[in-house]
Amino acid sequence: MADTATAAAADRSQMQVSDEIAVEIRNMNKWYGSFHVLRDIDLTVYRGERIVICGPSGSGKSTLIRCINALEEHQKGSITVDGTLLSSDIKNIDKVRSEVGMVFQHFNLFPHLTILENCTLAPIWVRKIPKKEAEETAMHYLSKVKIPDQALKYPGQLSGGQQQRVAIARSLCMKPRIMLFDEPTSALDPEMIKEVLDTMIELAEEGMTMLCVTHEMGFAQAVANRVIFMDAGQIVEQNEPKEFFNNPQSDRTKLFLSQILGH
């Protein structure tokens, strides 16, 4: 699927990473009631890094990246996003959310608004950008994801792949510094997966900091500079993609890889 993966891409994975910290998670724990979903998560994401998170279903991947923009609150430890410490202060949370873009498995476009309105809504109301300017930005990003001609349609009139690309454009319109993806391609038909992954690869090449939960291992090999494996709420293993796939350390990783790569 993401056979855009090339040897050159692997080299790229080392580029553009600075030592400036984008996200810092320290000893973070989360419970759902008495169920301990995330245990002692420590993770530092540098600006420009592309991180792919994988792991079996229910291991807490979604929960982890949803904690980063406070869609879920954590109970212990600290998360610092772009220098802002996430606390219960709603102003901080809104600030972080406006700096962090998120793309969901089911797109979560607003069905009562046109594609263009979907893209201009947050810039106009959160960033207070004049409507005209917001529309220009929106058209720019819609052309980038290759659907400028659909701008006046409603989400319900688009295919799944197109909707997901709109969702990416919608996040980009906020000019985020970090992008989170939660299984952006798992709700799509195989033909559409490629168009979405291509968009994401393009984004990665521009140096966007990305955290991506996905099972597209081709994508991981092509653009990630770190792959994180989670199981039972813990980060079990993390490594650069080549090492991770060729030389997994823990048994759980090996088992997972053998299942997902279909050996």
Binding site: N69, L71, I90, D94, K95, R97, S98, E99, V100, G101, M102, F104, H106, F107, N108, L109, F110, L121, A122, W125, V126, R170, S171, M174
Partner: peptide, 20 residues
């Protein structure tokens, strides 16, 4: 997902209620 979509864009409570 509609609540989360609105939240993830940084809309505050009243904005997301009113607009989304």
């Amino acid at each position: 997902g509609q609540y989360e979509g609105a939240d993830s864009l940084g809309l505050d409570y009243w904005q997301s209620m009113r607009l989304i």
